[in-house]
Nucleic acid binder design. Structure first.
Lengths: 324, 324
DNA sequence: ATTGGATGTGTAACCGGTTACCCTTTTTCA
DNA sequence: TGAAAAAGGGTAACCGGTTACACATCCAAT
């Protein structure tokens, strides 16, 4: 591969001049510029980003840490981040943390050692101190780590409340809730929204809430338990779409018709929800938009642009489909 | 951040010695080693990977180029690649090419400029010349680019044939095929397998094959057309799962019951196929395993390990579920 | 005519590691 | 006992860029 020295030699100038035309910075005479440009073309010269990074102390790369890219929420997010980053001239390093504290810290270290400019992270094990210690711009997405940190989340509580009210408006009399993973902030919030919506109902007791794990399997079991406890339940609000699917599977297993005997509404609006049969009614997050926003906020942070706002709570949209 | 010089100063040795203990290479006395290790711990020193990369001419990173991470086939692949790479000490840069020639070439250039050690790519627009010109280890996955290049694919033809035979064994008399994207090698192969399986059938004509685009929407239209042409079709082999889902949707729209009136079998075995309702019968690729294998092959290539084989054609598994 | 700012360009230090090379000391063994 | 080999460790060049600084030239304003 040709280096800047080769270009300089061919153009008959110094490396400094080549660097100047490369970066369009400093004074360069018309004549020199042309010679350099010609040499660059002739040698098909591409500057070495690693050498650049060493000097600049950052590598035009951003780290994306997600729990698991196989979780259907994240591919869309990853795509949005990569699209936006790419457009702005950054690469994306993908990291799967499995919500594991050690893995996360290890990735943070590796990313820092690789001089990433910034990090987008979806995590609930990370602490504000850990992040501040890193001293790299970070934006948190889908999950709030701390009020002070740049964050992109959605109206979890509001959406959950709307979902539950929607079930009521459809004439459902007994509505159960399958909670998300214990300890995850958005699971608390969604559960809170559900609670607010049913608080006044005479039939409501805590036993209408069961714990799921944000995945399908846990939800199948949870739903069977819930339906066993309360056979009169005719509506379920699941804290995410995968659990809503689990609920539907459980209903089928128990011989209950969806939506006739049991209406189900999910949360997230993953692609799967519109693809499955029957199509799932859900409270959709603007996932792509969130990824986009997270990336632009992060890049602004990295480039030290002045910003009026770094904490965004986005609106959520209830999409009615076939399961309600 | 502490640098190697700080460590050297604190330990009272030269940077060369620090480097030697870091890399466990060359002679280092017990006494020096201990002093250096103590200094490293005390300063929480982590070597700067970028500086290392500059000298080594590679960055312990591999590029992963996929058409679109939102396509449900790829998250599992990406996960396998990242897991394996991470285990072996490499980072993964994620690139979405949208099957676009220019984007792909641009990414290849960027990756090269970033001194990636190797690249895993799923593409059918790339040519062998392009890849050889790059002069970086590459393994192709899911799609063959050239016989000579390291490649991980599956028995497309065999699987397709098995799928079609399976439909026959279930008593289906007229079996249609929804082809994958024109020009994609595996679409040709799967179509070839179908052809072989139905070649002897008296009813078979080319009109039992329709073109899809490996996505759900194209398949809905294609299926409606196919079923319009041949209302007697009672079995469909779709060249991938997303198209199989489209076929099922189309069947529902037309009032046909699946599987009673129309059996549907897909190909790929994406997570979605087991999650949807009804669960999809499919010819499953060992996606995770493919990603794993691709990564280990690539790493062996990068590390110049001797290898007996770099072209793998993996077995495929027919999983019977509810749609047949 | 003088001077000071703008323009143009090269030299060399620097980013933070690795390692070739050299020198000294210790060990091994004929 | 002496020479060769092994062990230990420092100096400085190098990877491929960027940029501070020095120096030269040119032009406009005084």
């Amino acid at each position: 591969m040709a280096s800047i020295k080769d270009v300089a030699k061919m153009a008959g100038v110094s490396v400094a001049t080549v660097s100047r035309v490369l970066n369009d910075k400093g004074y360069v005479g018309q004549h020199s510029r042309e010679k350099v440009e010609k040499a660059i073309k002739e040698l098909n010269y591409k500057p070495n980003e690693i050498a650049r990074s060493l000097f600049k102390k950052h590598s035009n790369t951003i780290g994306l840490i997600v729990p698991d890219i196989m979780n259907p929420y994240f591919p869309e997010l990853a795509r949005a981040v990569e699209d936006t980053a790419s457009k702005l001239g950054y690469n994306v390093i993908l990291c799967n943390s499995d919500e594991n504290k050690e893995k996360e810290q290890a990735y943070l270290d590796v990313l820092k050692q690789n001089y990433v400019n910034g990090i987008i992270v979806s995590s609930n094990t990370l602490t504000a101190e850990q992040i501040e210690a890193l001293n790299i711009p970070i934006v948190s997405i889908d999950r709030e780590i701390s009020k002070g940190l740049p964050t992109i989340v959605v109206e979890n509580k509001k959406g959950a409340k709307a979902a539950t009210h929607f079930l009521k408006s459809k004439g459902r009399k007994r509505i159960g809730h399958i909670r998300g993973t214990a300890g995850v902030v958005n699971a608390e919030e969604r559960c809170g929204g559900y609670r607010e919506a049913v608080a006044e109902e005479p039939w409501f007791t805590e036993s209408y809430i069961v714990n799921g794990n944000y995945d399908m399997e846990s939800s199948i079991d949870a739903t069977r338990e819930l339906l066993g406890r309360h056979p009169d339940i005719d509506g379920i609000f699941a804290a995410n779409d995968m659990m809503a699917i689990g609920a539907i599977k459980a209903a089928y297993q128990l011989g209950k018709k969806v939506p006739e005997e049991l209406a189900v509404i999910g949360f997230d609006g993953i692609v799967l929800s519109s693809v499955m049969i029957p199509e799932l009614t859900t409270v959709a997050q603007p996932i792509y938009e969130m990824g986009e926003l997270a990336t632009t906020v992060l890049v602004n942070l990295m480039e030290q642009q002045p910003m009026e706002k770094t904490y965004y709570t986005l609106e959520v949209e209830l999409i009615e489909r076939r399961t309600t």
